[in-house]
Design a protein around this nucleic acid. Sequence first.
DNA 1: GGCCCTCCGTGTGCTGGCGTACATACGGCC
DNA 2: GGCCGTATGTACGCCAGCACACGGAGGGCC
Lengths: 223, 223
Amino acid sequence: MLAALPRKQYQRMRGGLESVALIFGDVLYEPGERIRHVYFPNDSLISLLTLVDGHLALEVGMVGREGMIGVPLSLGTDVSPVRALVQGAGAAMRMKSARFSKEIQRSPQLQQEVNRYTSALMAQITQTAACNRFHVVEARLARWLLMTRDRVGSDEFRLTHEFLGHMLGVRRVGVTKAARALQKEKLINYSRGEIRILNRRGLEAASCSCYARVKDMHDGVRH
Amino acid sequence: MLAALPRKQYQRMRGGLESVALIFGDVLYEPGERIRHVYFPNDSLISLLTLVDGHLALEVGMVGREGMIGVPLSLGTDVSPVRALVQGAGAAMRMKSARFSKEIQRSPQLQQEVNRYTSALMAQITQTAACNRFHVVEARLARWLLMTRDRVGSDEFRLTHEFLGHMLGVRRVGVTKAARALQKEKLINYSRGEIRILNRRGLEAASCSCYARVKDMHDGVRH
DNA sequence: GGCCCTCCGTGTGCTGGCGTACATACGGCC
DNA sequence: GGCCGTATGTACGCCAGCACACGGAGGGCC
């Protein structure tokens, strides 16, 4: 995302940016708590989760290098409504909240970039909401794997069924069942946390249309 | 929402504002289409719906006098990701998109108000997403009726089960069943589209915690 | 008064996901 | 090379919501 900024603007921000290594399972924000830093993932991947009383977590958004976390700051709020969880380890740049707020006031280009992303994120959350309501686990799992693939840029990644359950809001057993079905179709392969996509096209066919929708939105193809 | 602005600022905007009567069932935005006006409901009530292929609609947000529709404009996008449907007839003020974009550039207070509302709306959408995923129809119906009540300021309103199905993303029959259960508990009463809340406290108890959560968010009590 | 349209009530069978419980299998570590 | 923890496979009963179908009831309109 930072790469989309004019060189000059980026230079000015650099002083406030700090490179960090995000490790799997790190929780960057908790719902209702203050946002201390904004993060710009490089090759890392972050999930936005909503929590509700006695239930599993549920992913409402996925953020990779195309975006950032901490958008509420640009809207003048310093409290996150979601949990932000590192789902794919890797590098990211971060900046202190106060500094970011200043930068965004000084730079219309940065403001604009963030705004553009904010609206895409809102659309993503909305789409995901409907998807989680209407589509069966198998299709949602397929969508999720594809979205992850697009962001980490690899057909292979480490994820247990347990973890996937927290993303899709279903029990581990439900994930196992769906994953087995996909494996039988030779679309994916996995063992002990190593998941590999074997047939991307096939997986797209098995996923719901929401995958294409969200993809289009972020590509800016949407109208 | 406009009432929260400084008098001077409001005076300047007045020229661009136009009073309109919204009638039940009007569709103000369609997903993917251009936003022509922003609307500030007065005593009217608007639902934000997401649509997905062969399914019923699903409400992701509800907007009354506390908010507005057309937030994407303040983020520099003139395309709506949702359908905006008039769910409660009444009055609203509206302004042409171009004018609104100008106003918001000129007025930091307006920008700030809109931003504040945008973050509350995002939180509402997120919360609703989880609610729609995890909670049973009866609890969601209770929540929905309470939210409507808060916005129209009356314990009675006109709504068919069919319509409610489109809000909650379930079949009409599902609504009928849930509504009957609430009626048996003497929490509500209804006949041919006239719904009346008999016992607000009881309805709150029957609803899921999401009601209180969303309420708190808009009241700004949330932390 | 009869007709029709809209809205609500109920029934049947089916399926996806839940809660729970237990069985297997891989792999590292001592 | 046996032990143990983590990850995955499977099974059983249960229930909410689905699709579909049809019955009934209020109310306007002629």
